[in-house]
């Protein structure tokens, strides 16, 4: 059984079928790319996988359990975390707090224990702080712990968003165009980081990109969609020479 099993995923907005019969299987610790031209329906797939949109048809199983109809926060608890194409950080909060919020579900003290500052509060908060700092350290961002998220340089904001997603202890991490808006140097560094995360945390990663060359270097398997339909699937070498893919990207 694969970690993520998606079958016949379809969504219609009014008369428009944005995604049609999408399917994918992702194994544990696999790094998979989902590519396609702008407007192909990649983010829509993500939004269905993470519970933002309810699919019209199809099944999504995460670790054997269906996530269809679940709320986004329930899906996070089930083990799927994501980032956003247009970075969504808690802008007015510090980097540390951004990460700590994602630890929310791993803490157990209740409202009263928090309000009265009982021992459970102190213990769990200090663990959370330590974990947050360790996580930031991995991303080389410990020195930014007290900086407001909105004041981070662009590349660091992307990194923080990934760190925050990782703090929810996911089994699969979904990254929505993490390299958007980055220069070639930052992109290269980011791709290395993604590779590193996969190895370090032992999780599966699903990566969306519209720039094909980026994913070729790091993904083991690639699925290509266009106009909401899968047009090719395989290892990077196969994808590169697939006539359908070339057509989709270069036009007729």
């Amino acid at each position: 059984m694969a970690l993520l099993e998606v079958n016949g995923l379809t969504i219609k907005f009014g008369g428009l079928t944005a995604v049609d019969g999408f399917n994918i299987n992702i194994e544990q610790n696999e790094l998979v790319g989902l590519i396609g031209p702008n407007g192909a329906g990649k983010t829509t797939v993500f939004n269905m996988l993470t519970g933002v949109y309810l699919p019209t048809e199809g099944t999504i199983n995460l670790d054997g359990k269906s996530v269809v109809g679940k709320k986004p926060y329930d899906i996070v608890e089930m083990g799927a975390a994501r980032t956003f194409q247009n970075i969504r950080l808690f802008k007015e909060l510090t980097v540390e707090d951004n990460v700590k919020i994602a630890y929310h579900n791993q803490m157990n003290y209740n409202l009263m224990q928090g309000l009265f500052r009982l021992p459970a509060f102190w213990k769990e908060e200090s663990v959370a702080k330590e974990n947050a700092m360790d996580l930031l350290d991995i991303f080389d961002m410990k020195m930014y712990a007290n900086t407001l998220a909105k004041n981070l340089p662009y590349g660091k904001q992307r990194k923080l968003e990934i760190a925050r997603a990782l703090a929810t202890k996911p089994k699969i991490l979904m990254l929505d165009e993490p390299a958007a808006g980055m220069n070639p140097y930052e992109t290269k560094e980011l791709m290395e980081t993604i590779h590193f995360i996969r190895d370090k945390f032992g999780i599966a990663i699903l990566l969306i990109e519209h720039d094909m060359s980026l994913v070729m270097g790091i993904c083991e398997k690639i699925t290509v969609i266009d106009y909401g339909k899968i047009i090719a699937r395989g290892v990077p070498e196969e994808i590169k020479s697939d006539p359908n893919v070339i057509k989709a990207y270069l036009g007729e």
């Binding site: 808690f90 994602a102 929310h104 928090g114 769990e124 908060e125 929810t168």
Partner: peptide
């Protein structure tokens, strides 16, 4: 005490970005 606890942070995260808050499990 509330705003500086996990419950308070959850509340503040909604102010900051509701969709992001849901995406980290709030």
């Amino acid at each position: 005490a509330l705003i500086r606890s996990r419950h308070g942070r959850a509340i503040i995260s909604i102010r900051e970005d509701e969709i992001a808050a849901e995406a980290v499990g709030i």
